Amino acid sequence: MDILNVENSLVNLSLEERLQAIIQLFPKDKLVFSTSFGQEDQAILYAIATQSLGIQIFTLDTGRQFQESYELMDLSINKYAVSIDTYFPKTESVEKLVKEKGFNSFYSSVDNRKECCFIRKIEPLNRALQGAKVWITGLRAEQSDNRANMPMIEWDEQRQLFKINPLIDWTFEQLTAYLNQHKIPQNPLHKKGFVSIGCAPCTRAITEGEHPRAGRWWWENSQKECGLHA
């Protein structure tokens, strides 16, 4: 497959048209969409559900989520009549981590935080992606410096699948307009300054002028990534 040609063919399409094109290119039973119920993911979820595209949807529950995130998950499932698979971290891994380092070891160092992210996010993600050939995400280039140059379609060598980011070139203004136009439910924390929402103990609201990812792992000087999209 010529990834560049495929990406060029998608550039001028709407979100709905991009998703329709994707399911024409790949076997539907090999496509998966991961959602954390952020604004980008809510837009993609709406487009998948309202077009009845039949793409498998999954989410990761780290065990440290905001209550508002759970409420939005239930609301979205009921509103769009979709099935969403939830992947949890392995119990024995969490128990071992807590026993050895306590509940909040991630505050101590970047390495400890990455260890927690691996146990609670990356290992469950790897299980969720087993057997998939295409992973659809809600990444946007504006979200962080790490994502600024990400293509719409890329080959994930580690996981041996195509990763497709259908909103990568959308601005925040485009996203907001889409959400408002379709009256798509959003996490109420967004109105309280939480632009990027992750685990509750690792996320804070940002102030005007701060980078959208500044509220993630705010106590450390890092690239503000957990490793899911390394």
Rank of each mutant, 00 (worst) to 15 (best):
S144M: 11
K114N: 14
R120K: 08
R127F: 01
G131I: 14
D111C: 04
R147I: 12
W135Q: 04
G138M: 14
C116F: 01
F118I: 07
N126R: 15
E123A: 15
A132W: 05
L129S: 02
N146I: 10
S108I: 04
I122V: 10
L139S: 05
A132T: 07
R113D: 12
K133P: 00
R127G: 00
Q130S: 12
F103E: 02
E142A: 15
K114E: 11
R113L: 07
E115N: 04
F118P: 00
Q143D: 15
R113Q: 13
E142T: 04
S108K: 10
I136Q: 03
N104Q: 08
R120Y: 06
L139C: 08
V110S: 09
K101R: 05
L139V: 14
I119F: 03
N104F: 13
F103Q: 00
K114A: 06
A128S: 03
S108N: 13
Q143M: 10
K114C: 03
T137A: 10
G131T: 13
F106A: 08
V110L: 13
E142H: 08
G131A: 13
T137F: 05
N126T: 09
T137K: 08
I119D: 07
F103G: 01
R113N: 12
I136T: 12
F106T: 07
V110F: 11
F103R: 03
R140S: 09
F106R: 03
G131D: 11
K101L: 04
G138R: 14
S105Y: 09
K114W: 04
S108F: 12
F118Y: 14
A128K: 09
L125K: 10
V110G: 07
S108W: 03
N126Y: 14
C116Y: 00
L125D: 01
R140M: 14
S144P: 07
S144D: 11
G102D: 00
T137N: 07
R140K: 15
Q130L: 15
K114Y: 14
R140I: 08
L139Q: 15
V110T: 08
S105F: 09
S144F: 13
L129N: 04
K133Y: 12
S108T: 11
D145A: 02
G131R: 13
I119E: 06
P124N: 07
N112C: 04
G102E: 03
D111T: 13
G138Y: 14
A141D: 12
N112Y: 11
D111Q: 15
L139N: 06
N104I: 00
D111N: 07
W135T: 00
R127E: 02
Q143Y: 15
L139K: 07
R120N: 14
K133G: 06
R127T: 05
V110C: 01
F118T: 11
W135A: 09
K133M: 10
Q130R: 11
F106M: 05
I119S: 00
E123N: 06
S144K: 05
S105P: 06
I122C: 00
D111A: 15
N104L: 14
G102V: 02
D111H: 10
S144H: 09
W135P: 01
E123L: 13
K121D: 08
A141C: 12
N126W: 09
F106P: 01
E115G: 00
E142M: 03
P124C: 11
K101Y: 15
F118M: 05
G138I: 15
L129T: 05
D145M: 02
F118A: 04
D145L: 02
